[in-house]
Design a protein around this nucleic acid. Structure first.
Lengths: 107, 107
DNA sequence: TATACATATAACAATATGGTTATATGGTTT
DNA sequence: AAACCATATAACCATATTGTTATATGTATA
């Protein structure tokens, strides 16, 4: 995964409210009106948080009557964990740097 | 790991420049003056990025003469991957919600 | 159809983020 | 001591983030 895209998904994860929402969704799918009383922020704030998670494909939504239920995309979460433990090999960049004589040698 | 702390570390990771710096450090330790020509941002910008990574304990620094070499803390990175795949169980919170009659049932 | 409820969007404010240039600090070398 | 090089910090700016309140939209129901 490219750095820009990985960074975007990490930004979606990098908020305590959104992490707690994801944790809650591990137990079961929830709709916005269930999440609101758990946090002390407004309904639009919760709505924006789940929307951010949806954009990053960390959750999916399903409308059921007047409610919209959100579910966690565990696969996406594992994908990110994997990407972090397997960051790309950039030794080629460092070799180029060396060819330009820009590396620091220091025994 | 608590949500606040995990979010802080994820914020440190959630930037393409910092992700690339971490990738470079996988190959070998680097000092700031080696990183600067790889990116087209200023030396102080790079300095602030590595400082952010250091605060999150994602890198460690070692002074060698006039240079400061940064090394990756792979353990920390794996820790985060693990935390993401094992978010806490908040079923208790949802049980409380149910007792308050705030859950939505919808067959 | 009118009303009610759940969710999303708009407009705004305060703060955080990521860059800049200028300058200070720490260590090396002449 | 003076000059030099690497790095960090300060002051600043533009933009992004995260919350607010007010309002629009979508669906169900009296």
């Amino acid at each position: 995964m490219e750095f820009e895209k990985l960074a975007d998904i990490l930004k979606a994860l990098a908020d305590p409210t959104r992490l707690k929402i994801l944790s809650l969704l591990r137990t079961r799918d929830c709709c916005v009106c269930e999440l609101v009383p758990i946090f002390n922020i407004s309904q639009p704030a919760i709505s924006k948080h789940v929307s951010r998670l949806k954009t990053a494909e960390l959750v999916r939504e399903t409308r059921k009557g007047q409610w919209v239920f959100y579910s966690i995309n565990e696969k996406r979460l594992d994908e990110i964990g994997y990407a972090l433990s397997n960051l790309p090999d950039l030794s080629e960049e460092l070799r180029k740097l060396e060819q330009q004589g820009l590396t620091v040698t220091c025994e």
